[in-house]
Design a protein around this nucleic acid. Structure first.
Length: 268
DNA sequence: CGCGTTTGACCGGCGC
DNA sequence: GCGCCGGTCAAACGCG
């Protein structure tokens, strides 16, 4: 169902005061991949990720937009560190090349686009407090009694701008919607999903760009600490070869989850 | 009946 | 201190 027809991976600096505001409040990075009009086949999203066999720091490479297309700004907000890199993506290797093979002019500048899309609303660029240990579930409303000493640390976020008609992109995991809010300055609501797997705290937000309704912005937060659920949706199972879906979590990045697992703070 | 969605209320952070 | 706003909870509801 989710047709990753055009994927825009766009790495952007999220805490950038200027033109580089991330669309979200504090998205770590936005990846925008533009795969011209690729067949809804397996190319694109997954493939893209599939080729990312490196650590988070290298994601930019993986998502490296089309050659010469642009620079990729990537900002990672880990515990206390905030890094920003500028990578001139050139070689993405294999399949991805096809995905991003099309130098999309639109990709050129980093977050400016993303910024334009959503940032307007975020007048208060939420400068997310430097690291705050999410501690797993500090976000619950109930635990107001959070240890005052430490602020909740936000998990690294990872945003994808996907051109799709469906809001909820299938990524192999099972998600449960737990909330929806109207987005300021946007006629489209933002949906909040949580991985249904027990003890998995991964969350994701899905919203549509109000500038380009055809673009869905999916923001992942956290890393899956489990393999893909066995109960895969038919669509996914059919869309992706089993080999791609049954990797060991730490084996090699094939999917968003794999990707997430390579987040900075996931390094073991 | 179990699971997922909907939706209004609540909470905490932040800016003024 | 107050109000706004993003994020989350949880009861009600729907669906297979």
């Amino acid at each position: 169902m989710s047709d990753f027809r055009d994927l825009y991976y766009h790495a952007s600096a999220f805490k950038n005061d200027h033109d580089q505001q991330s669309f979200g409040d504090e998205t770590d990075s936005i990846y925008r991949v533009s795969s011209s009009s690729v067949e809804p086949s397996i190319m694109s999203f997954t493939d893209c990720l599939h080729t990312t066999s490196m650590d988070y720091g290298s994601l930019e490479m993986a998502f490296g937009l089309s050659p010469s297309s642009s620079e990729v700004f990537s900002s990672v907000e880990g515990s206390n560190r905030t890094t920003k890199q500028l990578v001139g993506a050139e070689d993405l290797g294999g399949g991805a090349a096809e995905v991003m093979g099309t130098p999309n002019s639109s990709i050129s500048s980093s977050s400016s686009e993303a910024g334009c899309e959503e940032d307007s609303g975020k007048s208060k660029k939420v400068v997310q407090p430097k690291g705050s240990e999410d501690g797993g579930e500090s976000s619950k409303k109930g635990n107001k009694a959070k240890t005052k000493g430490e602020k909740k640390q936000r998990e690294p976020r990872f945003a994808f701008m996907t051109k799709s008609e469906v809001d909820h992109l299938e990524d192999g995991y099972r998600w449960r919607k737990y909330g929806q809010k109207a987005v300021k300055h946007s006629s489209y609501p933002r949906s909040y999903y949580r991985c249904t797997t027990q003890k998995c705290t991964v969350k994701k937000r899905v919203e549509r760009s109000f500038q380009d309704p055809s673009i869905v912005i999916t923001t992942y937060e956290g890393q899956h600490n489990h393999p893909l659920p066995t109960t895969l949706r038919g669509s996914v199972a059919g869309l992706f070869p089993p080999s791609m879906l049954t990797q060991s979590p730490l084996g090699g990045p094939n999917f968003p989850h794999e990707l997430l697992m390579q987040m900075p703070n996931y390094h073991h």
